[in-house]
Amino acid sequence: MKKLMLGAALAVMATAAQATDVMKMAVTTSFNNSGLADVLLPEIKKDLDLEVQLLVVGTGQAIKLGEQGDVDAILVHSRPAEEKYLAGGFGTHRTEIMYNDFVFIGPKEDPAGIKDDASAVEALKDIAGAEAAFVSRGDDSGTHKKELSLWKAADLDVAGFGRWYSAVGAGMGAALNTAAGMNAYILADRASWLNFGNKADLALLYAGDPVLFNQYAYLPVNPELHPHVQTALVDKLEKWLVSDRAKELINGYTINGETLFVFNANAE
């Protein structure tokens, strides 16, 4: 009798343990380094009984995971790459969730003199002209894609740069750590910088150019290509991400009084 009761109890426990739905989402390292995931995921689980398992990679790798059907959705921040992904039929649609901006971080003494520059392109020209140490993500992330587009706009080719330019092939946190160790300039997203603990002698030197706008978007994986995609859970999460509940949490997430993201959910 005791064995039967124990078996029944274990069965109930197993059923309860299986009750929470699980889906996989590829997200950028900048989103994860910001600390916002630690705020949102527990609330998603509480509100939806949904466990969202994150694969933390750069935007380029996140898109590859979506193309291969290794995740159910992606949350990334490079619109040209997102549009190419959708044009290829790998995603069903694109929903904007929130934004912040890219910023130039560098040595407090600012040897390249970018602090008072008129544009992001001018800042990069000054860094290159001074051959001041610069750390690049070098990982095909959204931040790396933005950096490369800015060098191109400045009519400068990173392939011809000298040893002052270091492409580390790493996530935002690791790249910031490298920049701190080298006392180098780096392009970062504002949220990762604010949440970064090892600032050393670095400071936020330049921001404000409209070209540094940084939009994050949610793209469900196309179930017609990958039938195993959990579309019902993906849709459930999307409705939550564009809700007033998400807006309150995203806009309310601050560090030292500074807002890291601004909610602007908009489905296309």
Rank of each mutant, 00 (worst) to 15 (best):
Y206H: 07
G171L: 00
V76Q: 05
D21M: 12
G160F: 03
L156R: 02
V27I: 12
L75Y: 07
P107E: 03
K236W: 10
E248S: 15
D117T: 13
K108C: 04
D21G: 07
V221S: 00
A14N: 13
P227C: 10
A73Y: 00
A11L: 10
V229L: 08
Q18K: 15
S141V: 03
Y253L: 06
V56Y: 08
W151D: 04
V12I: 09
T231L: 15
N100H: 12
P80S: 10
T259N: 12
A16W: 15
F196N: 00
Y165W: 08
N100M: 06
K115L: 11
G197K: 14
D139W: 04
A232T: 14
K3A: 11
F102K: 03
L219I: 14
L55A: 11
D209W: 04
E122G: 07
Y253C: 07
D201V: 06
A17R: 15
Q230R: 12
G91T: 08
G162A: 09
L36S: 05
I97K: 01
R163D: 15
D189R: 02
G142N: 07
N100G: 12
G129T: 06
T259M: 08
T20L: 14
G129D: 08
Q18Y: 15
E51G: 08
R190T: 12
Y218L: 05
Q61G: 14
V76S: 06
F261L: 02
A174G: 13
V39S: 04
S30I: 00
V242Y: 01
L150N: 03
K108T: 12
L260N: 09
P42A: 04
T143A: 05
L55I: 14
L40W: 09
N222Q: 13
Q18R: 15
L4H: 10
H228P: 07
Y165K: 02
V168C: 14
K247W: 05
G129R: 04
G113F: 02
L260D: 04
F213P: 05
A133H: 13
R137C: 06
L156K: 04
L260V: 09
A191K: 01
V71K: 00
G91A: 10
N214R: 07
A207I: 09
G66K: 01
V234Y: 01
I250W: 01
I97R: 00
R163Y: 12
R137P: 02
S192P: 05
I97C: 05
A180L: 05
T20M: 11
F261A: 02
N214S: 11
P223N: 11
E224W: 15
N183D: 11
P111I: 02
L225I: 13
